[in-house]
Amino acid sequence: MTLVALVPLFSVIFMLVWRGSKQLSLGVFTELPPTAFEEGGGFGNAIVGTLAIVGIAALISVPFGILGAIYLSEADSENRLARSARFAAKVLSGFPSILAGVFAYGAMVIGARVWGWGGFSAIAGGVALSILMLPMILLTAENALHMVPRRMKEASYGMGATSTQTMLNVTLPTALPGILTGIMLAVARAAGETAPLLFTALFSNYWLMSNGKIDLLQPTASLAVLIYNFSSMPFENQIEMSWAAALVLVLLVLFMNLIGQAVSRRSIRA
């Protein structure tokens, strides 16, 4: 059975490496996407765009997720607000990603025009992804905080620590590896999402800049949308590009996971 389960995984990885590595060169990291009949090219802007969008999403969802998890883990079992928040997070974690996109489209692309800005942008994409990341981070962090042994917290209280000091000095550091794992899982999932980005960040054939400065308020390329766009094109070069982009995306996520693990392992030793 294990072997059967491994077949799809390895066939995907095999195809990715086989088809994707052919096009892999330094150029794909530095050049802009090729147009219809152009040869070569790359997707440097999409790598930057994915990092920017996921970064924005993490900036929103990590603080809210961790603060929410602290609240949920400290609230007692009869707290109505905590119970409904936990229920909402569970519902949200099964939320179709395209609906997160629709929400961000309504709020950030159209809605924000009320205040004079809005439109397709990296920030709108980040908001859409943060909705998907928030429940994952919240629920895994709450679980990690619950796993901290009660006697460790008691030791801290017994030393004359306040509940804030106990949380900051003992509970959070002890739960950190679990929290980081949750963040990494959420980032990995968000980086591969396409649907919510289609109508929030849209796509761009250019770098994430205007007038020589980084501009987060313009349509932004991402690896996932590039793969989606190019894979349905009739042009050989663009299809090859989307294979290479798929491989880079997988490697990017893997790389972030490894960093996360290294960080959490170091934090245990300290």
Partner: peptide, 29 residues
């Protein structure tokens, strides 16, 4: 009160930190 009246528990419960930091915890507080 708990800063003047210390406590040792049934299960040894050191924090998941270094020996030094465990002992220095109260000083830090």
């Amino acid at each position: 009160v708990r800063r003047h009246i210390g406590m040792v528990f049934q299960q040894p419960n050191p924090f998941a930190m270094s020996i030094y930091k465990n002992v220095a915890y109260g000083l830090k507080l």
